[in-house]
Design a protein around this nucleic acid. Structure first.
Lengths: 188, 188
DNA sequence: GCATTCCTTTTACATTTGTTAAATAATCGA
DNA sequence: TCGATTATTTAACAAATGTAAAAGGAATGC
């Protein structure tokens, strides 16, 4: 749990009372590779903190598994398009590498916003950062070639390449596995 | 100015004091087609509300003009990747159709967050919505074909097709103008 | 109203990426 | 450890998109 509050401290200092309030709506979860955390069609009402391991958000397009994003140690994972609209999500969360997660009950969290402004501010900042990352990711999908996107990943997240199967990385980059394999071959 | 507060009311009711505080950090701007609102290399410290007209965020990739997004009447435009990081933006804001904008001083706005929790909440919700839209847009760029993206635009934003030059729409869809022209021809 | 500029389409060809299938490599469980 | 499953690469061909150049249309300023 300390890991979580160290993570929070990077964004916003929290009074003890606020910390305690958050602690009460959290629970620790251990999951093995390939297990499903949240299924498709379910409305997202939980925000997860990845303490250890890797999780991914994915969905199906024409029957094909597409990875939207990965979350590693010390980061937040949530299907925001469902969390913020309270609509069912077409996406699921799955464990990619044995993981320890902290589940934060979002329904209760949002209620805490009224009592502890520091908590509202904390999550505002966390999601502002997520927003910025998504804007940057969109830019890379919009106008970088597949090869550029792969090279960038190789530089900025070599860990991802080592720990995540290429089949997931391909769709994350917006290309097929075959195409990714080809790009890797030309870069050797 | 009423338009702005009607827009805000969709997200969050504001006490009169908070409304007054916002009013003080706003100014109305009239701009003509093709005028630059914020140049490249400038750190974004202003949030704009589009009351009338159209604006776009764009940048250059290998010397080519790429449109990242459009904003129409009754919406917010800001270069969030700069606004939330206080880093200079590689992007610029330009007017696409003669516009009337309300400029909100973001530096002062963020100070108001401490005084008026309702204002912090309002903008939290506004940017949460922007976040969701960006996630959805990313999904469309990641795994829909160019033709699918164009058709979706045709259905969901026919106004955009009528009021915005195709050269901007092409890069917005992540393709070249020639390719867009081809897609339009096959759909006739 | 005309000339100029800008926007859009078209053509031809090059390049990239997708598709399908098969071969090879790596991983996992009994 | 072996067999089976899963992941990755390779090959061959099809489809989509990019590039460059030219032509036609539309809009704009003088």
């Amino acid at each position: 749990m300390d890991t979580l509050f160290r993570f929070f401290a990077q964004f916003q200092p929290l009074p003890t009372k606020a910390q305690e309030a958050i602690r009460e709506i959290c629970s620790v979860i251990h999951l093995k590779k390939n297990e499903e955390l949240q299924p498709i069609g379910h409305t997202c009402r939980t925000i997860y903190f990845v303490k250890k391991g890797i999780a991914r958000i994915y969905y199906y397009k024409d029957g094909i598994d597409i990875t939207e994003s990965f979350s590693f140690e010390n980061s937040i994972i949530a299907r925001v398009e469902s969390l913020f609209t309270t609509k069912p999500s077409r996406k699921a969360i799955q464990i990619v590498e044995d993981a320890e997660l902290i589940a934060i009950n979002a329904t209760q969290l949002f209620k805490l916003y009224d009592i502890h402004p520091s908590i509202e501010r904390l999550f505002r900042k966390i999601f502002e950062k997520g927003y910025v990352e998504t804007v940057n990711r969109m830019e890379s999908l919009q106008f970088h070639t597949a090869e550029e996107r792969y090279s960038t990943l190789l530089h900025e997240a070599p860990d991802l390449l080592r720990r995540v199967p290429l089949k997931y990385i391909a769709s994350f980059l917006g290309i097929t596995q075959v195409s990714l394999s080809r790009i890797r071959a030309t870069l050797k």
